[in-house]
Design a protein around this nucleic acid. Structure first.
Lengths: 186, 205
DNA sequence: GCTTTAAAAAGTAAGCT
DNA sequence: AGCTTACTTTGTAAAGC
């Protein structure tokens, strides 16, 4: 039996940072190739990096949100590219802006099909949300780590809301042992 | 503090005044759906509880009333799909679903997933199918669900496929389109669920 | 509460050939 | 009958309405 922990894959990392300088997004939009800026629709300017692939939301305040990266290293690499692009436009950017990971989305595979109906009852209807008419996944909120898991009939799952990769590992471990003690993983 | 107290009284009074409207809306929708009086009463109780727990803030009265009715139908064992419910409500399906999940969580309704078999009598009756077909459809649902085929699937689509399969097996054939129309699902969904079900049942369609 | 961005899971749906 | 595209769910920051 493959340890479900070994199947964990980081699918998306969201992080925030700031250059410590206010920006004139109108002029940045003019000079930065590929920038999408529509202040009527959303106050942030969207800039996409190709390698690593990510999307940066740049705000007037100088704060930046980076999303879509596949690892925390990719987040740093993507933001390094964004910082350099801004410096190319003669914009002052702090030396090493603090980058804070806000959310990590992970997928994993328990390796066997799940009876979501039985799991809903077993985990307790008050602890889960399972409405297959609206969404095929069962929503399970954990307290520690503070993450949300989406369990599917195929045995695959998604863990989101974590701030570090270990959160997903702990979550998978707890979910596996909980399902095992309920006799729902056989 | 006095201001907050006054505000609470004001919103409570407003809620009580709107209660009349909410209850009449529940009555109107329940009539349109043709559900028994017991369901309207359960829906009214759920709405009142939502009002008492201040769950209506930031939501429309009609949305909470509709969600309460949806929950009541399920609690009473005669579920209506969100599609059917939205047909008699002015609130869109997505909002009804969201509001239902919210009040269900907050009020601790502990709603069990809908059993597809609950749709069989009504859908079969609308299709003028015999008791034999209903029994067969229930068998298909029961057996395939036990094999784990139900996880993540919509109850209406699941029931529709079993009814379609049963109508074929009992020589009372209904087309996928006919079944799809009463269940408000697509023929594609019936086809997909049907294939899985007959394979699990060991039937060669 | 909404707006925007990203990604996964799996089911459902709609449009086109 | 496929194939493609797109929407449902979860979490998260940002600024502004």
């Amino acid at each position: 039996m493959v340890d479900p922990k070994e199947t964990i894959n980081i699918e998306n990392v969201v992080a925030s940072t700031g250059i410590g300088q206010e920006l004139d997004l109108q002029s940045v939009a003019m000079d930065l190739e590929g920038a999408d800026y529509d202040p009527e629709q959303f106050p942030g300017l969207v800039y996409r990096t190709q390698e690593p692939k990510s999307a940066a939301l740049i705000f007037r305040s100088g704060k930046i949100v980076c999303t879509g990266a596949k690892s925390t290293d990719d987040v740093h690499e993507s933001l390094r590219i964004v910082f350099d692009k801004l410096r190319d436009l003669q914009i002052q950017v702090d030396e090493d802006p603090e980058i804070v990971v806000q959310n990590i989305v992970t997928s994993a595979d328990l390796g066997r099909n799940l009876n979501l109906n039985a799991i809903a009852i077993g985990l307790g209807l008050e602890n889960i949300e399972y409405e297959p008419e609206q969404f095929p996944g069962l929503v399970y909120r954990l307290d520690d780590p503070d993450v949300v898991a989406l369990l599917f009939g195929s045995g695959k799952l998604v863990i989101t809301g974590g701030k570090k990769p270990e959160d997903a590992e702990e979550a998978v471990d707890k979910i596996v042992s909980r399902l095992e003690e309920l006799g729902l993983l056989d | 503090r006095l201001r907050k107290w006054q505000e609470r009284i004001r919103t409570k009074d407003a809620g009580e005044r709107n209660l009349q409207f909410a209850l009449s809306e529940i009555d109107r929708m329940a009539s349109a759906l043709g559900v028994p009086r017991s369901v309207r009463e359960v829906a009214s109780v759920i709405y009142r509880r939502a009002l008492d727990d201040d769950l209506i803030r930031g939501r429309s009265i009609e949305g909470v009333a509709t969600a309460a009715l949806y929950a009541a139908c399920r609690k009473e064992g005669i579920p209506r799909s969100l599609e059917e419910i939205s047909d008699v409500s002015r609130v869109e399906r997505k909002e009804i679903g969201r509001t239902y999940r919210y009040i269900s969580q907050e009020l601790g309704l502990e709603m069990e997933p809908v059993d597809p078999k609950k749709y069989v009598p009504r859908f079969c009756s609308e299709l003028q199918l015999s008791e034999e077909v209903q029994t067969k459809a229930n068998e298909i649902i029961e057996e395939t669900a036990e094999q784990g085929l139900l996880s993540g699937k919509s109850p209406t689509g699941y029931a529709a496929a079993a009814i379609y399969a049963a109508s074929l097996l009992c020589n009372e054939k209904k087309t996928q389109r006919e079944v799809a129309d009463v269940a408000q699902v697509t023929e594609v969904t019936i086809r997909n669920r049907y294939q899985e079900q007959i394979e699990a049942m060991g039937i060669h369609g």
